[in-house]
Design a binder for these strands. Structure first.
Lengths: 145, 145
DNA sequence: CAGTATCCGTTAGGATACTG
DNA sequence: CAGTATCCTAACGGATACTG
């Protein structure tokens, strides 16, 4: 063992390419994960409830993400022998410990949307450029709500 | 202006399919965004510095994400007329306000990697299943670091 | 150094149809 | 209701080559 102490030393570093926490970060720093965990924070939800609350999510995507969250230990899946069958998803203790940062990220997004739109308007107005900024899905067309 | 007060009322809701903050959440709740913002939190970085610090990121991906962060007002891009030219990226005030939640997400990932791996081992061991859990990239093979 | 451009494989994710 | 199974396309993202 090392002679140098490392009390609060993490064993993992997301900045290292081969660190196993890099793929995990990809699962956690994810739009659907943030929305699902945020929804489950209040109480257990049935599949259909989640599907309705998280508007626009397809059952395929919701299922896939719930499975991933379950496998990683953030969510439990309980099948109730009713008829028709219902399935309840709830956060584990691990999932609950993950929720605050994710909720903070989502709330930040909701709270600073105006600032961001102002910044985009500035960026898109300033000449200097010619080509688009890529990565961004949906540059302008988003009127409805 | 409204007669009903709405002091802490958000105008945006990420759970609504058509809310413009949904795409923004996708930009922010993102692996690369978390790593870039986390790196820039300490100080301004040159492009090459970021590229080296965030191991494994390609210049294409790094450039695309930096452009998006710049357009959304999180990052400034300053070109220094040196030879060869160097470019400095730094957080704006807006970006700095976004950093704490993102750093929290990354640190959570680093700190709970062991818990997650234990959960995965449990999940993958328990029978009941047959097919894989999808979504997850890289199920087991990740020895190096 | 800090990009841009191009080719190209892999994956996310929508739509649809079917099952216990 | 809560899935699973396909099909299909749009993007993400790696690799490589070229430029001011």
């Amino acid at each position: 063992m090392e002679t140098t102490d490392d009390q609060h030393e993490h064993h993992y570093d997301a900045y290292l390419a081969q660190c196993p926490c890099r793929p995990l970060l990809d699962v956690i720093a994810n739009k659907w994960t943030a929305l699902i965990v945020g929804a489950l924070l209040t109480r257990e939800h049935r599949f259909g409830e989640l599907r309705r609350q998280i508007e626009g999510v397809s059952q395929k995507v919701l299922t896939a993400n719930l499975r991933a969250l379950e496998r990683n230990g953030f969510v439990t899946r309980r099948v109730y022998p009713t008829s028709p069958p219902s399935v309840g998803y709830a956060l584990t203790d691990l999932g609950r410990s993950l929720a605050p940062p994710l909720v903070a990220v989502r709330e930040w997004t909701e709270r600073h949307m105006d600032d961001v739109e102002a910044a985009r308007a500035r960026y898109d107005t300033e000449a200097t450029r010619s080509g688009p900024a890529a990565v961004d899905r949906a540059a302008e067309p988003a009127p409805a709500r």
